[in-house]
Nucleic acid binder design. Structure first.
Lengths: 194, 194
DNA sequence: GTCTATAATGGGATAGAC
DNA sequence: GTCTATCCCATTATAGAC
């Protein structure tokens, strides 16, 4: 693998673990097995490297949202089930991703410009809810926040949940598997008319 | 107000905004209207100051959890309604609190040792669900994660939600007010037997 | 308790050889 | 492209006067 790619790869990891200001250029260089000067050669400065990593990680985070939230031609039930399944799986592979992104968005105010399809998809969800006799007329942003938040929260709050005793009766892994089953049920019963 | 208290007060603000490693001792000193050396006099070093602020903020975050989740003698419906109401109100007053705490817990691994009542309260919630014919037998940690996550997520993910278009049709404030009404409905329909 | 002044180090950045 | 060496400012930390 070429050096540039290698640097980006380890930078992604370290930035996620320690945040932008907690990360040292030296540490990235060491982990990548190159000299610090090379980071500046490729990315000009810390900010340049960080930005490249950040937009990359934003894309990575949005991908499953795009893919799994709005597969047309499927009934809402299946789409919610698929979404919860797919999103939790994807978060399992990148457990630090959301905490990192949301933290950085809040601290520095980094730009966040998602592709418009996602926002539009949420609006569209509202239209569907209105048209379907089976469901309550819920503001789609409320629904989306509930679904996404319920999937994401275990990852963001993992240390807190463990402190509260989550792992006394199960493992985190089992908790997530159970969650994939139970969450769609709760949500669906929650938004159906009866 | 004495200097020590003043320092802690501004440190709470600044640490929440910029995170531990993003915060400069100088900035805290300036904001408190004292000299930098005084911070070291009272708190020994940055870590000492941070720790004191952090445990303080942890307590602040847990307080509404303790107060509002487990008021005995009330039917579950009312307790959930009260909890959502009270917790969202409390988060409105400290919108950065959760992002900060969860971020720092994940980056540094800060100790997180909540008072045992909260964990026990969650277990107890499970017992109640089992005893009550009206509700499904749901793992209480799944339920708690869903409720807490749904309240908290809008605050943690605010920049993201705004990027997705949340504020195109309402203000964040209105969104929260609506949320207080709608969330208990979704949750309750979600866990009731029919 | 609070300040000024300064030490000590950390860490981002660059020049220049190879 | 990649390295060594070095610069230099930012930031933490301390000594010592008041």
């Amino acid at each position: 693998m070429d050096s540039r790619e290698k640097i980006l790869e380890v930078a992604r990891d370290i930035f996620q673990k320690k945040g932008k200001s907690g990360t040292r250029m030296q540490e990235i260089a060491d982990a990548a097995g190159v000299n610090k000067a090379l980071l500046h050669y490729y990315f000009k400065n810390k900010d340049g490297l960080f930005k490249e990593v950040f937009v990359d990680l934003i894309r990575k985070m949005l991908l499953p949202l795009k893919q799994q939230m709005f597969q047309k031609n499927l009934p809402l039930e299946d789409r919610i089930q698929n979404f919860v399944d797919g999103y939790i799986n994807s978060l399992k592979e990148n457990p630090l991703l959301l905490t990192f992104i949301l933290g950085e968005l809040s601290m520095n105010n980094m730009p966040f410009v998602p592709p418009p399809e996602i926002g539009e998809g949420i609006i569209q969800l509202g239209v569907e809810l209105k048209e379907d006799e089976e469901f309550k007329h819920i503001d789609p942003f409320q629904l989306a926040t509930t679904i996404i938040g319920s999937c994401v929260f275990p990852f963001i709050a993992r240390p807190m949940l463990i402190g509260l005793g989550l792992e006394k009766s199960t493992t985190f892994e089992e908790f997530l598997e159970e969650r994939k089953k139970i969450l769609p049920q709760i949500i669906l019963s929650g938004i159906k008319i009866k």
